[in-house]
Each structure stands twice: as structure tokens, then as C-alpha cells.
Simulated assay, not measured.
Amino acid sequence: MTDAAITPPIFDGHNDLVLRLLRGDVTPEGVAAGLPDGHIDLPRAQAGGLGGGFFAVFVPSPPVPGTSPDDMNQPQYDLPLPLMLPEAEGRDVTIKGIAALEALERAGAVTLCRTVEALEEALFGPTMAAIMHIEGAEGIDPGLEQLHALHARGLRSLGPVWSRPTIFGHGVPFAFPSGPDTGPGLTDHGKRLIRECNALKIMVDLSHLNEKGVDDVAAISDAPLVATHSNAWAVTPHSRNLTDRQLAMIAESDGMVGINFASAFLRSDGQMKGDVPLEQMMRHLDHLIGILGEDRVGFGSDFDGALVPNEITDCAGLPALRTAMRAHGVDEALMEKLCWRNWMRVLRKTWGA
């Protein structure tokens, strides 16, 4: 494979590899040596030019009775969300997830980074550069003591919700066709959480928040608005995607959006099927750049958390994305911005380092 196929490196806004570790599907040593399935391991990352990304710590819910993944293959759907999780359960799983991510570093699969300088160095190194991210703040207490403890441990990015409600706010359901205006926004606890994240220089992720929640963050936050793994609602009218009004707010804040590879959020019919051409991803790319500009768009794959296009399959398939972008007219300067430089820019502005 040519150097052009695997360069520039891609820094990814979101993956769920830690969830596989929590479930016991894989081991840290297996991730470092290579896995027979899933989307991410170190050898495939090196083969595809995945330089690193946000590694999400997520607390899973039991399946909702009467629902299945096939529900997202219907012409219309509105999946009921799981109930709020107890704080003790959220805290226990979150701490185990952080420990699993640290074990990945000990195994030589990732390098945990707390500054942009460290990220840029690790991005071109032998391991994957990793940001510790929490997706859904179930493990954070109302007094925010746990937020401070996890920040000291390396937490640098947090999403207040993963779709289901938390004490901090409300997320969007998985619904198509649907807009993101699906309920109330941040609670008083949530507003304090955003202010404290700003004080600690923890990036706030808008992905999964509903419309009122995004508005609340925009009204409170003094940092750029960022959605790590979300797409354009104007192209795919799914509740998880961002409307033009929301994109304009993100642009005004000098934030950014990472394009989600999940098929249901890319396809015009909203279905979770892998036979989606990468030209459809280019439609989202064009729309996002049209509103956000070239400096505020990147990628947020949702690897190991969603069904991605067949042309990509896993992180070793990222050369297909670079090929599609070049065929679409993306030049090398813009390619570098989309693949990694835009993430470094917004993180430097958010973290101040």
C-alpha cells in the first residue's frame, strides 16, 4: 500500500473499543497484538493510518424489551430509550472503563494524552494517541467530586448524556425521520457540570444531546461547541443529526463536528445497513463544510459502536475514505485539516495547551 493511502493520519472523534474490553470480548494485549474481529486494533490502525482518537468510556444499559437492532431497518422508527441508570452502577462501570483504557496503554496499544503537544507527538508514533472521553455522565455525582477525580486521572472530554436521561440532561432517541427537539434540556445539575467542565478545560461533547440541551450548552459554555460524532440533518433527517441552526451555532463558537460513520446517520433512508457508498459521506462532508467552513470538520467514526459502510469495514479500511475524498476533489491541504489538524486546533483552543 502506498504512503498516500495511509496518510495523512486520521485522528478520530469517537470509538467504543473500551466497551469491548468491559464486556470481556477482547483483552488489552489482544488489541496490541491484533484481533480477529471488531473495528480497531493496533496492527489494523497502523495498516489504515488511524493515528488515534477519543476513546469513549460508556456505561451500557440492558436491552429494552421488545426492541432489536433490526428496528433501525424499518422505513420509520422511534426506539424507546433505556431508563436512567443508578449513580452507583454508573460510577462503578466508569471507573472500570478508565482502568481498561489505562490497561491499553500498559499493553502498548495507546498513549494517553492530556495536551495537544502530546497528541501531535503520539499521532505519528508507534501507538494510537488517545484522549480519555466519557460518553454519558452516569458515573459523575451531583457534587462533581468524581469529575475532579477523573480529570486528575486524565479525563479531557465528556458528553453529559448518551441518549438516555441522566441527572444532567436528556438525549435524543434513535428516531427516523425526526428532528432533535425531543424533550427538555439540561437540568440544574447539568448546567453546573458544563460550567465546571469549562473551569477544568474538559471538552464538552454535544453528540446525543437533544436540541434544548445543545441550546443550554451554547448559552453557558465559554469553550468552542463540539459534536464529536454527528452528521447533517439536512442530508439525513435523523434525530441524532445536527440541524443547520445547530451547525451555525457551532460555527459561531469556532467549534467543530466529527462525521459519524454509522450507516443510519449517513443514509438518506435512515437505515442501519452497510451498503452505503462513500459518496453519501461526501454529501455530509460538503454540507458541513458549507456551514462550518474547512477548519471545523473532521471525523468521528463510532468504530466498535455502530455498523459502518462496507467500503470501510474497520480501521484498516480508512484508505478507502482518503481515496474517496481525493476523488471528490479534496486537496492535500484540506485533507490534513479534515484528518487531524482541525481536531488539534479545536482542542488547543479548548484545553489551552
Rank of each mutant, 00 (worst) to 15 (best):
M1I: 07
M1P: 04
T7S: 14
I10R: 00
G13M: 09
H14I: 03
L21I: 11
G24S: 13
V26N: 04
P28L: 08
E29N: 12
V31E: 02
A32V: 02
L35F: 07
D37C: 02
D41T: 08
R44V: 06
Q46K: 15
Q46G: 08
A47F: 10
F54L: 15
P63I: 12
V64S: 09
V64T: 07
P69Y: 15
D71G: 01
D92Y: 13
D92A: 15
V93Q: 10
V93R: 12
T94N: 00
K96P: 00
G97R: 06
G97E: 04
L101C: 09
E102H: 15
A103M: 11
G108V: 11
G108A: 04
A109V: 13
A109K: 07
L112G: 05
R114D: 13
V116H: 07
A118H: 13
L119K: 02
E120T: 09
M128F: 14
M128V: 06
M132V: 14
E138Y: 10
D141T: 08
G143I: 00
L144Y: 09
L144H: 05
A149Y: 11
G159T: 01
S163Y: 06
H170Q: 12
P173K: 13
P173V: 07
P173C: 02
P173Y: 07
A175D: 12
P177V: 06
D181E: 14
D188Y: 08
D188W: 08
G190Q: 01
C197Q: 10
L206D: 00
S207C: 08
H208E: 05
D216H: 04
D216F: 06
I220Q: 03
I220D: 00
D222P: 00
A223F: 03
L225W: 02
V226L: 00
S230Q: 06
W233K: 00
L242W: 01
R245W: 00
L247G: 00
M249A: 10
A251P: 02
A251M: 03
D254T: 09
V257H: 00
G258I: 02
I259M: 09
N260T: 10
A262L: 11
F265Y: 15
F265G: 01
G270H: 03
M272N: 13
G274A: 14
R283K: 07
I291G: 05
G293F: 05
G298A: 09
S301D: 01
E311V: 05
P319I: 03
A320P: 07
T323W: 03
A333F: 13
E336C: 06
L338C: 05
C339P: 04
R341K: 15
W343E: 04
M344F: 09
V346S: 08
L347E: 07
R348P: 01
A353E: 12
A353Y: 14
